[in-house]
């Protein structure tokens, strides 16, 4: 695993993957790559990685590649998006058109493409988007701007907190079947769980 950024240095959820059921193991390992994209162009992938980097406060390319791959998978699904405001287009259309709109906003305000902007300017555009305060270009009124931000942050954050490196950093025990948790009360942890400031018992022991 790459650099560890949390309260639980040395804790690696993946060191315990042989304890997980095979189905779960396969699902989680796919998040480590390699990824193939069915829907998104390479520019759209780069845009999503940049946007997701701000939304999740993350810069490791491996993690952001998974986040972009998650967008690609979700936007390509026919099953539906649970709910949508009547005036907002379906998520695939919203995100694909939304990335183009972000590019237009960047050019309008800074005379440069979004990816060429500095971190502060990119951040400011996203901050304004969240509040629906970017100038209206095309159909992008306040409702659509807010809807775009919510869709981007929702897909980015759910992917980010499904990455096993992130689980390790936040001290999340992760999948626990078939063994379950035995010590669930205050102040107790199973020997294989993350321990504050130190490593858990190594899975190989």
């Amino acid at each position: 695993m790459a650099s560890h950024r949390g309260l639980y240095p040395g804790y690696d959820v993946l060191a315990h993957k042989h304890e997980w059921d095979a189905n779960t193991r396969q699902i989680v390992e796919k998040r480590l790559g390699p990824f193939s994209y069915k829907l998104l162009s390479s520019w759209e992938q780069s845009m999503l990685k940049a946007v997701a980097g701000h939304l999740t406060y993350e810069d490791r390319p491996e993690v952001l590649a998974w986040v972009a791959a998650h967008f690609d998978q979700e936007l390509g699904k026919a099953i539906g998006e649970s709910q949508r405001q009547p005036e907002v287009p379906p998520q695939k259309e919203l995100v694909v058109a939304g990335l183009k709109a972000l590019e237009e906003w960047a050019k309008l305000q800074y005379q440069k493409g979004f990816l060429k902007l500095g971190v502060q300017d990119q951040f400011q555009i996203l901050r304004d988007l969240q509040l629906g305060q970017l100038p209206m270009v095309g159909k992008w009124n306040e409702t659509l701007q807010r809807a775009l931000f919510k869709k981007l942050v929702s897909l980015a954050v759910e992917a980010y907190y499904s990455h096993p490196w992130v689980w390790s950093e936040i001290g999340y025990g992760g999948p626990a079947y078939p063994r379950g948790y035995v010590r669930i009360e205050l102040g107790l942890a199973d020997p294989w769980e993350a321990q504050r400031g130190g490593s858990s018992i190594d899975a190989e022991l």
Partner: peptide, 15 residues
């Protein structure tokens, strides 16, 4: 599976 994203399939996701 022991996974939140995967468990979405159990929900009614139709829009």
């Amino acid at each position: 599976a022991s996974d939140e994203l995967h468990a979405r399939t159990l929900n009614w996701q139709d829009t």
